[in-house]
Design a protein around this nucleic acid. Sequence first.
RNA 1: GCUCCGAUGGUGUAGUCCGGCCAAUCAUAUUGCCCUCUCACGGCAAUGACCUGGGUUCGAAUCCCAGUCGGAGCACCA
Length: 486
Amino acid sequence: MEPGSTSPDSQARQDAEEHDDIRMRCAPNPNGPWHVGHARMPAVIGTYRERYDGWFCVRFDDTDPETKRPDLEAYDAILEDLEYLGFEPDEIFRASDRLETYYEHAHELIDLGGAYTCSCSGEEFSELKNSGEPCPHREKDVETVRSEFEDMVAGEYESGEMVLRVKTDIEHKNPALRDWVAFRMIDTPHPREEASEYRCWPMLDFQSGVDDHLIGITHIIRGIDLQDSAKRQQFVYDYFGWDYPEVVHWGHVQVDAYDVKMSTSTISELIEEGELDGWDDPRAPTLKSLRRRGIRGQAIVDAMVELGTSTSDVDLAMSSVYANNRDLVDDETDRRFLVRDGVELPLGGSPPAEANPPLHPNHEERGVREIPVGDAVLLESDDLPAREERIWLKGLGCFQYTRDTLQYTGEDIDVVREGDVDVIHWVPAAESVPVRLRTVTGDVAGQAEPEVGALESDELVQFERVGFARIDRHEDDETVAYYTHS
RNA sequence: GCUCCGAUGGUGUAGUCCGGCCAAUCAUAUUGCCCUCUCACGGCAAUGACCUGGGUUCGAAUCCCAGUCGGAGCACCA
C-alpha cells in the first residue's frame, strides 16, 4: 500500500502477493465508546482480513495516563462496538501492559547511541530545534544516559524534569522530525491498576513503532495527523535494523445528518451535561446509537469500505448507510401502522369491524395483521382529507369526508387504481398503543396499531409511510421505539 | 516561518503508476415515469464532475511547471 493510493482492492491484492501474511492493527485510544468515524478502521482492516486471509489485533495505545487519560469502561465498550460491526480481533493488547518491553528497547537504543536524556524545558528545546541546533545534553556519554534513564524508570524525576529523546537529525529540513521525545515522566498514576506504579511513559511514536515491529504488523493504516510518524519512527527502525511496515494515511471522515459534533470528548461532555441521554442516544453520532436504532453493523462496514483510503478528507453520507441497511432488512421486516400526532375522525357508514393488511406486501404467506376498527380513527394531520374528498384507509377501504365524518363508501380497490384516491395509513382511535419514537432530531409521539404493544424488544418494524424502527421496550404507558431511517 | 499531503457530479468511488479503448465507471442522492392498497422493495429514465493557467504530445482526467483552494505536522496528546 503506497501512500496516495486510492484503490483498496487492487492495492491490497497486490500486497497480498508480496507478503505471506497480511497483519494489521487497530490501535484505539480507550477514551470512550466509538463514534461513527471510528468504524472505518475495523471496517477496512476487518474486510481485508476476510478477503486476504489476514490477521488483525486491537492494541489499546493507552500510554498517557494524564492528558488522554484512559477511561476504564472504554476498553470493553470498544470491543463491544467492534463486535457490533461484526469483527472479532485475533488478539488484544494493552500498551500499558508492555512497559517493560518498551524500557528494554529504550536501553538497547541508548546503547546504540540512538537516544539521550534531556532536561531542557519544552520551550528551550523547541527554540534550539527550530534553529537546527543541538541542546547541550545531546552529546552526553552513554553511561550517563543509561543511568539517567534508569532513574526515569525508577520514578526519580518529577513530571517535566527529564525526557528521553531519540537522536535523529537535528538539522533535518522537516522540523517535525528533529530529536523527538520517546519517554517522559507523568506523575498521575495510570487508571489501570496493573499499570498504576509506572511513572515513565513512552510517547506514541516510540511505543507504537516498537510494537508494530514486535507484533509483526505488515500494513499500517492511520490518519493524516500521523503522517510524520513513519518518518520519525524510521530513525528507530534504522538503529535497530528493522524494516518498516507498509503505510497508508487517510484523511478525516465527516458525517452528515447530525447536529452533534463527531468527537468523543464533545459527546462525553453533552452526556455529562444531560443534553444527551447517554452514548446510545439517537441524537448521538455513535455506534451504540446506530445499534440501538436497529442499523446492522454490516451496513456501516460496507459504507466505510466504499469510502476507500484516500488521503483527502471525506464526507460520509448517512444516506448511504441507510441505503445499505434498507437493502439488508427490508425483505424481512414486518409492516405496521404508526400515526404521529394523530387527529381523530369518527367513522360512519358501517365499515368492516376489523382490518387485515398483510405483514409484508411481498410475502403474503407471512399472514396478516388484526386491527380492530372501532368508531373512530387517527390520521396524521398531513393526510387529513379536504371536504368531500375520498381517501383509502390502507387495509380497510374507501371513505369520503362528509360532515366531519369519514363515511364508508364500500367502493372497491379500483378507485385507487384509477388514481384519484390517496392511500393513507391510520390507527383505531380507541385501541391503539401509545408510542414514543426516538429520532435523530428528537422524540416524536404517536399511536400504533394494537399488536405493536406485544412485539418483542429488539424487533425491527417498518411503520408504513413513516420509516423503519426498532422496538426498544414497553413501558407502563407507552412503547418506546427508535427510528432507524426512512 | 519550516515541512508534508491532496483536488473527478450534492456525496463517495473507478480511471491517474504504464497518455489514446474516457464525449469519464459504479453506488448513493435528487427528479420523473412504471409497479404497488406504503412516500418501502423492484423496474425504467433524466439531472449532474476531471480546481485554474501554462507546457510536452498527433493526442492529457492521466506526464511536467506554476498558481489557487483545502488538509496535516513542527506537543513531555493519541
